[in-house]
């Protein structure tokens, strides 16, 4: 698990861990049932106060992203987490917003943009596009 901590932008460190772990789970770079590094290990790896890591893990547990097994550390919760879906939407929404902003600057209207999305999708998914042509 690779996390990047920054002290430049004023976001509390525990929150940076929470957000990045949520992202990793949503992006399936952390699989359900996978063990997270111990509090001590992650604190040493990131060179941060262990209490900060413990706080992030507790928050993630409350949010249902992680579960604890008594005395055996923290694990990614088994699938079906409603949070993963929400995180997916959040990640995509951010990208959509950027795309829309750029399109607007370039005077590309929504209809054209959606047309291009369909076109790109057909190119990336040959199977789907064949089906479309037959249907």
């Amino acid at each position: 698990m690779q996390l990047q901590i920054s002290t430049r932008d004023g976001i509390p460190i525990y929150l940076q861990i929470v957000n990045q772990v949520k992202y990793l789970v949503a992006a399936e770079r952390l699989a359900p049932g996978e063990a997270l590094p111990s509090v001590r290990k992650l604190a040493e790896q990131l060179v941060i106060n262990p209490n900060t890591v413990a706080r992030a893990y507790r928050e993630l547990e409350t949010a249902g992203v992680l579960t604890t097994r008594r005395g055996a550390g923290f694990y990614v919760s088994d699938g079906g987490s409603p949070l993963a879906r929400r995180e997916h939407i959040k990640i995509l929404t951010e990208r959509i917003d950027v795309l829309l902003a750029e399109a607007r600057q370039m005077d590309v209207d929504l209809e054209t943009l959606v047309g291009w999305l369909h076109k790109r999708n057909r190119l990336l998914e040959p199977a789907a596009s064949r089906e479309n042509r037959h249907g």
Binding site: V39, R40, E44, V47, I48, P50
Partner: peptide, 14 residues
């Protein structure tokens, strides 16, 4: 630097 800070972190954790 990292080592010294790591030792601080360990001191607290342990």
């Amino acid at each position: 630097r990292q080592e010294i800070l790591g030792a601080i972190v360990r001191t607290v954790a342990d």
